[in-house]
Simulated scan of single mutants.
Amino acid sequence: MAELNQIDLRALNRGDKRTWDAFVVAAAPLINAVVRRTLAPYRLSEDDVLDAAQDVFVRLCAQDFRLLKTYDPARAGLPTWLSVVSRSCAIDHLRRRRQATEPIDDVPEAFLGIEDRHVEKLRIPDGLLTARQVLILKYLYDEERDVLEVARLLSVDAQTIRSTHHKALQRLRAHFREEESGGGG
């Protein structure tokens, strides 16, 4: 059994079959241990853990060993680098296993806990917000447009929309906090 540090990386990156086989034998215990440790809190089946470990090897040799060719011995030892790659692959494996979700628009309102679709609109006192802030809130909430669409409509940068939106919400929060505490109109 070859040690990881004895693997000829140039031959490995060229796709030499014997070198790859020696690498797999040498790296498997480390990769399996890291994947097992990463996935342990999620109580996956043994098959899932083995699949995730296999994903590491697949990723290492995919696209003509593209990932493996990024290894730089000057930055880390091969076992350390493989540990990082293995942990990342295990997390990716978890993400792929996530249960499918349903778009909120497809869920009946009764299941969302919404009792009345026609909620009374918030009355914003005159002069509290600038005309631009009111317009942006109208586009974002009343017309349900996204930030990029509003930015295009107003011929401004999306960050300007986000910033104006944020400032408008700050003013509204401050106003309604003051009103709630009995200090305002």
Rank of each mutant, 00 (worst) to 15 (best):
G127K: 01
R59N: 14
A62S: 15
D47L: 11
R66C: 14
P29M: 05
I91Q: 09
I114P: 01
S83E: 08
P41W: 07
L135Q: 15
I124W: 02
S86G: 15
R75D: 02
F111L: 14
Y141G: 08
L140I: 11
Q159C: 05
D64E: 15
I114M: 03
A110H: 08
D142L: 13
R95C: 14
E144C: 13
Y139N: 08
H93N: 06
S86Y: 06
R145F: 09
Q63Y: 03
S163I: 07
Q159D: 15
P29C: 08
D51R: 07
A27T: 04
R96K: 13
I114E: 09
G113M: 03
L94T: 01
G113K: 00
C61V: 15
R95Y: 08
R132V: 15
Y141A: 11
R87A: 08
V147P: 00
D146W: 06
V119T: 10
P41F: 09
A76K: 03
D72Y: 05
A90Q: 00
L50G: 04
P108Y: 04
Y141Q: 06
L50F: 04
Q63H: 07
Q63W: 05
F65V: 11
L154G: 03
G113C: 05
I91R: 04
V85P: 00
Y139Q: 12
Q54K: 15
L128I: 05
A131D: 15
R162E: 14
L60Y: 05
V34Q: 04
I124D: 01
E102K: 07
T80S: 07
I104R: 01
I124N: 02
W81L: 03
Q99P: 01
L154M: 10
V156M: 06
Q159H: 11
R98F: 12
L39D: 05
R162C: 14
D47R: 08
A131V: 11
V56T: 06
A26D: 00
F111G: 03
R97T: 15
D55Y: 14
E115Q: 05
H93Y: 12
E144T: 14
L140Q: 07
V34N: 00
E143P: 02
E149G: 09
E120D: 09
P79F: 09
L153W: 02
D106N: 05
